[in-house]
Simulated assay, not measured.
Amino acid sequence: MKAVAFDRYGSAEELQYRELEKPIAKSNELLVRIRASSINPVDWKIRQGHLQLLTGFNFPRIVGSDISGVVVEVGPEVTKFQPGDEVYTFLNPVNGGACAEYAAVPESSAGFKPKNITHAEAAAVPIAGLTALQALRDLGEIQAGNKVLINGASGGVGTFAVQIAKAMNAEVTGVCSAKNLDFVKGLGADLVLDYAEIDFTKQSEKYDIILDAVGTKTFAECEKVLQSEGVYISTLPSFDNLAPMLTSWLLPGKKAKFILANANPADLGFLRELIESEKVEPIVDRTYSLAEVAAAHAYSETGRAAGKIAIVIEEVISH
């Protein structure tokens, strides 16, 4: 099968479009013909070698996590899916494997693809959408009427977080760059702040939930603008937030938490319902082919994407 992989850590130039062995589905797995993937910052951080302690030195490594595609085979223990089903999910980012024509997917982490969107749009959902959902609902315990601030509201996680928070009837403030103010307003945000002009941590407004989707603010900076029982959630683990996360877990009052998304059928189904009812729309900034993954990584690294970057994997004859 065709895939994009690298043989050593480094720049996007290490990525090669090449022929690799097609995976074999285990008894509890689906073999999925991947129609689309998408880029997440973790993909190029892994490629650069920032997570070597987790990812190790087994090469070649196929990049990518998000997938949307069609089931072509099922293992004998699989009960909920059959060949021909359209599915979406994400693979463990540590192992990768999404920027390829096929992937073996555990049944326990797959969901049925939303019917009203393309594979490219569906592939934009899993990591970013589940991160936003699980951060707001599970860690933030979001309630109708809550004041929620999304830092990085125009990015992959941010665009989902704004829409999910509005679908849950929260009052949403989005923080982004000047060029994306109207874009984030269009997603449903009640108020949008230009981070270059306004530092939300120095304002008088207090929030029930602050989701830092870009990891540019610490709990210490955000604490003063949290309500007395407010929750700060970061998508990036950092040394600065480690102590507050430990102490706030033990003590009452304001909380600092870190979100690590979990792929499961129930939450993929929840997102599917939001998308099919048109309460949430995946935002795709640009689309690249499988052979252009290196260029997609380079664009993602600029930090300028509004929404997600999709990888469309062309229909080819099976190898």
Rank of each mutant, 00 (worst) to 15 (best):
E77T: 02
I210K: 00
I275G: 07
A213D: 01
A261F: 10
L250K: 13
N241M: 01
G174I: 12
A132N: 09
T159M: 08
P106Y: 05
N92V: 12
S11G: 04
L250C: 08
A189G: 03
I313F: 01
E197P: 01
D85K: 00
T201R: 05
D199K: 00
E21P: 06
L133Q: 06
S38G: 11
A135H: 12
K224P: 14
R286E: 13
P126W: 13
K206A: 10
E171S: 07
W44K: 04
D182A: 14
A161N: 03
A132D: 08
A135M: 00
E14K: 15
A305E: 05
G215C: 11
E223A: 15
R35T: 09
A213L: 05
A123S: 03
A100I: 13
H319E: 15
E19W: 03
N264M: 12
M168N: 04
S37G: 03
I24K: 15
E21I: 07
S238K: 02
T173R: 06
A220R: 14
L31A: 00
A36L: 07
A310I: 03
A110V: 11
P126Y: 13
F270G: 04
I259V: 08
G145P: 06
A306M: 06
A103P: 02
C176A: 07
V175Q: 11
Y88E: 01
L250N: 07
G158R: 08
T55P: 12
T287D: 14
A189P: 03
H297Q: 13
K217L: 05
A220Q: 15
T287V: 00
S11L: 05
H319C: 01
L136S: 11
V74Q: 10
G10P: 09
A178S: 14
V72L: 02
G145M: 12
K80L: 06
P23S: 03
C99E: 06
G186C: 11
G145C: 07
S238W: 06
L236S: 05
S228P: 15
D66P: 00
L226F: 08
A122C: 10
K202C: 13
Q134Y: 10
P282F: 02
V72P: 01
A135D: 10
A124W: 02
F200W: 02
R35M: 13
S37Q: 04
F112M: 02
T173G: 10
I34T: 10
L181C: 03
K80F: 06
L187S: 14
L290D: 00
D240T: 11
I117H: 07
K206V: 08
V172N: 00
C176S: 13
E301R: 01
G253F: 10
A310D: 03
F6H: 00
V72W: 10
I259F: 09
A306S: 10
W44T: 00
G64F: 06
A256H: 09
T55V: 15
D85H: 04
S318H: 15
E14P: 11
A124N: 07
